[in-house]
Simulated assay, not measured.
Amino acid sequence: MTRLRRLVAAVLTAAALQVPSASAAENPPDGVVTWGASADRMGEAVAGRGYRMVVHTSVAGRDLRIRLSNAFGDRPVTFDSVYAGLRKEGAELVRGSNRRLAFAGADSVTVPAGATVYSDPLPGKLPAGTDLVISIHSADAAGPVTGHWMAMQTSYLTEGDHTAEESGAPWAASIGSWFYLDAVSVRAAPGIGAVVALGDSITDGWQSTTDLNRRWPDYLARRLRKSPSTVKGVADEGISGNRVLTDGPGQSALNRLDRDVLSLPGVRTVFLFEGVNDIKSHTGVTAQDLIDGYRQIADRVHAAGKCLVVSTVGPFKGWSEWDPAAEAVRQEVNQYIRDSGEFDAVTDFDRVLRSPYDHERMLPFFDGGDHIHPNDKGMQAMADAVDLDRLDCAGN
């Protein structure tokens, strides 16, 4: 298929897959995403519950805005109280930091089913590398909840509306997920942009240490803060078990690309690291199937005026679903990624993670214990392998 024909097919596919009323149809606010998490369906809502969610910023800026998502809801949900503050310890906030967020000038907001909404800008500075705390309450929440299951970060919940309180006392129950919140943006310095990591459980941070922000995109954010790069914002849009081609745990990368990635403000680069779940699923996915999926993503990212960096698929011999046939697909896909020249840059996570004695297996020093997910050291090695100069193709 020629590039032109692939582009036409990608445009048609994007139109067919777009979720009605979802955030991809909105114009994102001015600014740059400083934190993000992919949305998914997470069971049934509970009315009258409050959530105090801890997120870690990447790029500094002013006038923070949050995005609340009801993308997977089947009815409207009203948030009657939403606050943003800085964390002191646990669920306790820095005194004087907790402030109410408004939505089109109002204290409450109703988000239609399938939609998202941005808050108004909250005046003031938000530093990089900060634990920001978003507290939300809904008196009438019902139906499917939209959120992010595997946060690798402790947050908190309570019954009743305690969003305005800076004390952590009412927030006695801890949770490991984020609810309804899927993005935070700021007005960054002129010329600053963001990179979005689109991936699966490795990008989501499984086997990294909870509460220490040691996912590979976190390490990348720390590198970017110290670098002269104009790409400073980092959003982690990984979903555990996610696939490129088909829905399963979360919508596929193809189906969620607009909402989870391209709709975020200030995105300059998409970093795609995904494919192992397609390969190991034993559903007959071929290397050419995955290659076609990567090409569709590339065409849509480039049509949106963004750069695309793609990583090779890492080793997973020793994982229960590994077999020689799956390994052959992985090798063919990786050869295509390395040699096709169809992306703005390539990062070779396979070569970073694999053992020099067995290229099909992860180096034990980097292995989180299950032979597919890297530990903290592996996550850091991945981030260290990213060429920061190649994250902005407009500058190359």
Results as ranks from 00 to 15, higher is better:
Met1Glu: 13
Arg5Trp: 06
Arg6Trp: 14
Ala14Ile: 03
Leu17Ala: 11
Gln18Pro: 03
Gln18Met: 15
Val19Gly: 11
Ser23Pro: 04
Ser23Gln: 10
Ser23Arg: 13
Ala24Asp: 08
Gly36Thr: 06
Ala39Gln: 12
Arg41Glu: 14
Ala45Leu: 10
Ala45Asp: 06
Gly48Phe: 14
Thr57Cys: 11
Arg65Glu: 05
Ile66His: 00
Leu68Tyr: 04
Asn70Gly: 09
Gly73Ala: 14
Gly73Phe: 03
Val77Glu: 01
Thr78Leu: 04
Thr78Trp: 15
Phe79Gln: 02
Phe79Thr: 03
Ser81Arg: 13
Ser81Ile: 07
Lys88Thr: 05
Lys88Gly: 00
Val94Thr: 09
Ser108Val: 08
Thr110Gly: 04
Gly114Met: 02
Ala115Ile: 03
Thr116Asp: 15
Leu122Ile: 10
Leu122Tyr: 11
Pro123Asp: 07
Pro123Gly: 15
Lys125Ala: 12
Pro127Phe: 01
Ala128Phe: 01
Thr130Trp: 00
Leu132Asp: 06
Leu132Thr: 07
Val133Gln: 08
Val145Gly: 03
Gly147Thr: 02
His148Arg: 14
Thr154Cys: 07
Ser155Arg: 07
Gly160Thr: 00
Asp161Met: 10
Ser174Pro: 12
Trp178Lys: 03
Ser185Asn: 12
Ala189Asn: 11
Gly191Ser: 09
Gly191Tyr: 12
Gly191Trp: 13
Ile192Tyr: 01
Ala194Ser: 05
Ala194Trp: 01
Ser201Glu: 07
Thr209Met: 01
Leu212Val: 10
Arg214Pro: 00
Leu224Met: 05
Pro228Met: 11
Gly238Ile: 02
Asp247Thr: 13
Gln251Leu: 15
Asn255Ala: 15
Asn255Ile: 04
Arg259Lys: 09
Leu262Ser: 09
Leu262Asn: 09
Leu264Ser: 02
Arg268Phe: 00
Leu272Met: 11
Glu274Phe: 00
Asp278Met: 12
Ile279Met: 00
Lys280Ala: 06
Ala287Pro: 10
Asp289Met: 09
Arg295Tyr: 04
Arg295Trp: 08
Ile297His: 08
Asp299Thr: 12
Arg300Lys: 11
Ala303Lys: 13
Ala303Ile: 06
Lys306Ser: 07
Val313His: 07
Lys317Met: 08
Trp322Arg: 01
Asp323Asn: 13
Asn334Cys: 11
Gln335Val: 11
Arg338Asp: 07
Phe343Lys: 08
Phe343Leu: 15
Ala345Phe: 02
Thr347Met: 11
Arg354Leu: 02
Phe366Met: 14
Asp370Ser: 08
His371Pro: 02
Asn375Cys: 12
Asp376Arg: 05
Asp384Pro: 09
Ala385Met: 13
Ala385Asp: 10
Asp392Lys: 08
Asp392Glu: 13
